[in-house]
Nucleic acid binder design. Structure first.
Lengths: 192, 192
DNA sequence: CATAAATTATCACCTGCTGCTAATACTATA
DNA sequence: TATAGTATTAGCAGCAGGTGATAATTTATG
């Protein structure tokens, strides 16, 4: 499969950038072989593209991924304990092997917004009725909306919705116990 | 703040391992300075600890994080379309800043097992009644059990449960549409 | 053909590391 | 005190991946 049969310069650079983007651990030699050019050319290409050397790429990659928040929500508005709105742009890193963002990522985004909104790092949370309607790829601008719908006893119902510009992709209902900052609930009233 | 005032060998190595674990991008020189010893010593320490050189560490780190399946399920038994059992050991990489495994990770594990079991990469899935009862840290052996409970109309109900040795941590109900691609004989009749 | 653009080939040098060897510490103990 | 025994340190040759620069070669294109 020699799909890289002497591409023109710009195409090659595009692909090189893409390739390095999703696999930063490639040496110049690897690239040279992959594109059927010399390492010198690869170096020039990298220079032109402003792509740093492997070590730095790896470091950066590690920063991004191991740096906790895989999905960085851009909080647009936030009313503590009431509602919140955030944006995320899906990236290649978020997608699975099939190129789609797995439900757990969307769940994570939703949970993150809810956490931020509720100002609580973890509480035994129950979630109801998640719907992941459509697969979502990378490069999609997502809108994450969360809203506390109502309280019921010691529970708080939060609705989260993730949409693209015009389609609803994901929806979840979080049911959180109300814990007063220091003290939790001693009465575990969990109905099945 | 020189908190590393000549620790004894073993303590130093422990800390070194820990330090490198959560920040693989440190050179021997960095470490030498951090611990107030010579690079030679650091090298010996690394060798004794079986910790490879920085480049490899970074590559490994990138693999683990960007490498798709963050949680590698060890499938123990699997009956296609009926039930499955898998093990996972939680690691530091899975935990968030607070040191606990976020719900989305558990969700991901559950979903992964279900997908494997149902032999389907994505289908618009609905999930009901997730419960994340107890926070879970790293180094915990988890058991993930999935079971198709029943079908109803064009829907299939799958229950997933994640437990430690003796406690249930997480539970979810997946409701999947039945799309028949590779299965043989279930079409018109869906009574069950 | 002549010129410009793209590609390639070298060369010296840098960083982080390995492998090896030899020299110093620092104990602890007979 | 002397003597092991264990850390620790120093020093060197050599490797892989990369930088920077310069020169030579190929490949279009007017």
């Amino acid at each position: 499969m020699d799909k890289k049969r002497r591409l023109d310069k710009d195409t090659r650079r595009e692909r090189m950038a893409a390739m390095l983007h999703h696999d930063p651990g490639k040496t110049d030699r690897d690239l040279a072989e992959a594109f059927g050019v010399s390492v010198a050319t690869v170096r020039l290409d990298r220079k032109m593209l402003g792509i740093p050397q492997m070590r730095n790429r790896l470091e950066a990659a590690v920063q991004n991924t191991a740096g906790e928040s895989l999905h960085d929500l851009e909080i647009i508005s936030l009313e503590q304990g009431r509602e919140g709105l955030a944006l995320v742009r899906t990236t290649d890193e978020m997608t699975d092997a099939a190129g789609i963002v797995p439900a757990s990522k969307l769940y994570g985004m939703a949970a993150e917004l809810v956490q931020t909104m509720m100002n609580r790092s973890f509480s035994p949370t129950q979630v109801g009725n998640i719907k992941y309607k459509q697969p979502c790829g990378s490069g999609v601008q997502l809108v994450v909306k969360a809203k506390v719908a109502h309280r019921h006893g010691s529970k708080q119902y939060v609705y989260v919705q993730i949409t693209t510009r015009d389609t609803e992709l994901f929806r979840a209902k979080f049911i959180m116990n109300i814990l007063n900052e220091d003290e939790g609930d001693t009465d575990g009233k969990n109905s099945g």
